[in-house]
């Protein structure tokens, strides 16, 4: 690929990012490590790779804009706490890891129906390229179609295209009321149809959980509507999620065959399932595989970024 002449006079000036870029450098195999909570996703990291941590901290939080600029190494718990203080939240799941890890893995919050998917919440991404320079994709505002969508490419990339350093994330107001109901004997798909845009409908083969969110009178009305249909009780929290994630068309959940009841929690209407064992490998479109390979080659010609992992 040809190199291109420089025309832009803009430069990255943030010393923290510059320092991180220098740390990544332009040669040698390197992996950015967060809390290693999902270190099993996408294959085992190669041995003998230099590991480093991304910068941490909330850089700029603008509740009135519903955006937050946060470094990749920040823990999701810290971010959540800062947002909660202003009555807001974000789309990242908190499974004990970092913001960068959550974006790199790209797994959605179990309340994705109310919070939106992670990939829609990353407005701007900054990463250090294989050449050791900081690259910015997207923009800091809530709506933007200026140029190619690098943020989308980074969500779920497991850091193999660039070392993630900073994001601008969309935030949202915390609903007035969030309430979990549990039903011992309900049809989860009927619950999903009946409830108006629930935050989540979970199912483990016997029990169904539904997350109602919104203004108190609306939640009360939805609560009454569902309780009239099925016997249910309010509970503190959803069930714990097994480790491994599966994905399928939402309607296919009704025919989950290989997993016995109690060994999975499924997200109805989403097609996500967390199982106690890994999902069976699925066949991939060879053209898609080739496209992904070319992307990897274009972004990281020498294969120095997070070797061993494949998104």
């Amino acid at each position: 690929m040809t190199t291109t002449p420089t025309t832009s006079t803009l430069k990255v000036t943030d010393p923290v990012l510059l320092e991180f870029a220098a740390e990544v450098g332009a040669s040698g195999k390197v992996a950015v490590v967060g809390a290693q909570t999902r270190w099993d996703v996408g294959g085992q990291p190669a041995k003998g790779v230099r590991q480093l941590g991304a910068p941490a901290g909330v850089v700029e939080y603008k509740p009135e804009e519903m955006t937050v600029k946060v470094r990749a190494g920040t823990s999701v718990s810290d971010l959540d706490a800062e947002l909660a203080a202003a009555g807001q939240r974000c789309a990242l799941p908190n499974r004990g890891g970092t913001v960068g890890g959550a974006v790199a893995v790209g797994e959605d919050h179990l309340g994705v129906l109310g919070r939106g998917p992670v990939r829609d919440s990353v407005l701007q991404v900054r990463y250090v390229s294989a050449d050791g320079v900081t690259v910015t994709g997207g923009g800091p505002v809530v709506k933007n179609v200026s140029g190619f969508n690098l943020p989308k490419l980074m969500v779920g990339s497991l850091g193999v295209l660039g070392c993630l350093s900073e994001f601008v994330l969309r935030t949202n107001p915390v609903p007035g009321v969030s309430r979990w109901l549990q039903f011992a004997d309900a049809d989860p798909f009927a619950v999903f149809d009946l409830a108006h845009r629930p935050g989540a409908v979970l199912w483990n083969g016997t029990s169904t959980w539904v997350l109602l969110e919104g203004y108190l009178p609306d939640v009360e009305a939805q609560n009454t509507l569902l309780i009239k249909q099925w016997a249910g009780v309010e509970v503190e929290a959803p069930p714990p999620l097994p480790q491994h994630r599966w994905a399928m068309p939402p309607a296919a959940l009704s025919t989950v065959g290989p997993l016995p009841t109690g060994e999975f929690v499924a997200s109805v209407g989403v097609g996500r399932l967390w199982g106690q064992r890994p999902a069976p490998p699925t066949a991939q479109d060879p053209v898609v595989v080739e496209l992904s390979r070319r992307l990897k080659t274009n972004f990281d010609p020498t294969g120095r970024l997070n070797p061993g992992r494949t998104p």
Binding site: M1, T3, T4, T6, T7, S8, T9, L10, K11, V12, S129, D131, V133, T134, V135, T136, G137, G139, S146, G147, F148, L150, L153, L291, R294, L295, T297, N298, F299
Partner: peptide, 21 residues
């Protein structure tokens, strides 16, 4: 106007995306 919003490195990476397809 793209170079008023993006650095040359940013634009280069956008072009790498394009180029893969």
């Amino acid at each position: 106007y793209m170079d008023r919003l993006f650095t040359s490195d940013d634009l280069d990476h956008q072009n790498r995306l394009r180029n893969a397809f």
